[in-house]
Amino acid sequence: MAALLELKGLVKRFQSFTAVNGISLSVPAGEVLGFLGPNGAGKSTTMKMATGFLEPDEGSAFICGIDVHTDPREARRQLGYLPEGAPAYGEMPVHSFLKFCAAMRGLSGSEGRAAIDKAVGRTELGGVLEQPIETMSKGFKRRVGLAQAILHEPPVLILDEPTDGLDPNQKHQVRELISDMAKGRAIVISTHILEEVDAVCTRAVIIDRGRIVADGTADQLRKLAPGKAKSLDEAFRAVTAGEAAGNAQEAANV
């Protein structure tokens, strides 16, 4: 089966610093891919290139077989994206914001209303529709971001830290939503919460300093742990150098 999301050799450099150094991935329908890595490993940069927001220095990204950089509009029609921190227009009430996002996607009139109703139902935002987004809690803001991403029922969902800053109940709710959406879709979620892998992901990729260092199911990743305690934590620490080690190595290279 063809992959819905395909990344081929993505490279991104900022001045002399290489943030992403040759990442290739393919995500078929039905898969929820956990994108893990220490802070600064290149998770968000990779996602930004996958969505077409950033232009890669090398490589390309395909959404449903459409090249993100040669046909960005068509590719983005197939994509729902929650950027890091779930940015939204703070002064807008939830309903106006979703209406704006729907209009930008060409969903208007009764079609738009139906899409908004469905997304609002799924993210349980019904009670706060007239509230300005900036007055809401972090959890609600994140749900508004999610509602915006799933509005048009996209085959590919890219969610950058969808559960960051949520309380355990809200996390549970978002994970259920992701699992519900998974059928027939390719979903990528970035996170540094390892329990998320067991909770929602069918597969996980760990990246470190711009490269993929591990790829597999949660159980396969556990086997990478060196000690007796085969935990994801241990495996994560074993395959990623961590900031201190990375800096030491950089210093040694200089």
Partner: peptide
């Protein structure tokens, strides 16, 4: 400043 540019420019619009 608020990061909404990332949202705006990843919507299917030029």
């Amino acid at each position: 400043r608020t990061g909404t540019i990332e949202l705006l420019l990843t919507l299917p619009s030029a």
